[in-house]
């Protein structure tokens, strides 16, 4: 589903590579935690997969697209196969919960009929039924992140990338959010989640890829957060 082959990323005006000669393969339906300290290259990894950045060297393959050769106009098509969730939720403050989720389908030109069917289903799945008409500021952080997850998942993407989705949440809420991602994973969606929340990683016992200074220093199935140390 996602493959990095000898990928190096050097940002302009930076001497040290953010990622250095990375090899990584994520199979369809996997749930992978990418862990590591701040600046270890977790976010860069996700940005490369989203094609927000391009690799300096090496090959990035996502959902069958070789991103280095993907023409600009086909980037939107790639992103329709990827859902994205961030630490800061990124909701539209003047739209309701329902409208925020529907927005993702509207901009893709989906029919009103399809939207009216899929959005409530998705909101129910993330546990937000009855809160469709709330505005983001009327929700708790955990609920806002659920809206963001619903928006990322409403188009049934093959891949869901989550960049520190629990970074702004308390431990209990964080666990609920990750359980929700786990449920989505069981529908067949590949999930890559960057985090430095050790509790969560240790509880879920999923595959863990650890980055340090832009290099993969550990990749184990059913791993824990700090096994290498």
């Amino acid at each position: 589903m996602i493959r990095f082959e000898n990928v190096t990323k050097v940002y302009p005006r930076s001497s040290r590579p953010a990622l250095h000669d990375i090899n990584l393969e994520v199979n369809r339906g996997e749930f992978v935690f990418v862990v590591g300290q701040s600046g270890s290259g977790k976010s860069t990894l996700l940005r490369l997969a989203l094609r927000e950045e391009q690799a300096t060297r090496g090959t990035v393959l996502v959902a069958g697209h070789e991103l280095g050769r993907l023409p600009h106009r086909k980037v939107p098509r790639l992103r329709r196969e990827i859902g994205t969730v961030f630490q800061d939720f990124r909701l539209l403050p003047n739209k309701t919960v329902y409208q925020n989720v529907a927005f993702a389908l509207q901009v893709l030109g989906r029919s009103g009929h399809a939207i009216r069917q899929v959005v409530p289903e998705t909101l129910e799945m993330v546990g937000l039924q009855g809160k469709e008409k709330r505005l983001p500021h009327e929700l708790s952080g955990g609920e806002q992140q659920r809206v963001a997850i619903a928006r990322a998942f409403v188009n049934k993407p093959a891949i869901l990338l989550a960049d520190e989705p629990t970074g702004n949440l308390d431990p209990t809420t964080s666990l609920e959010i990750v359980r929700l991602l786990d449920r989505i994973n069981r529908t067949g969606t590949t999930i890559v989640m960057a985090t430095h929340d050790d509790d969560i990683v240790n509880q879920l016992r999923k595959r863990v890829v650890e980055l340090d200074n832009g290099e993969v220093i550990r990749d184990e199935n059913q791993g824990v957060y700090g096994a290498a140390r």
């Binding site: 106009r73 939107p76 992103r79 329709r80 990827i82 859902g83 990124r90 901009v107 188009n155």
Partner: peptide, 17 residues
């Protein structure tokens, strides 16, 4: 930029944006 950022993320075409 918030709206257009989300549009880009969910894969809206350049035309739509």
């Amino acid at each position: 930029r918030r709206e257009t950022g989300i549009m880009k993320l969910v894969g809206a075409s350049n035309f739509t944006i």
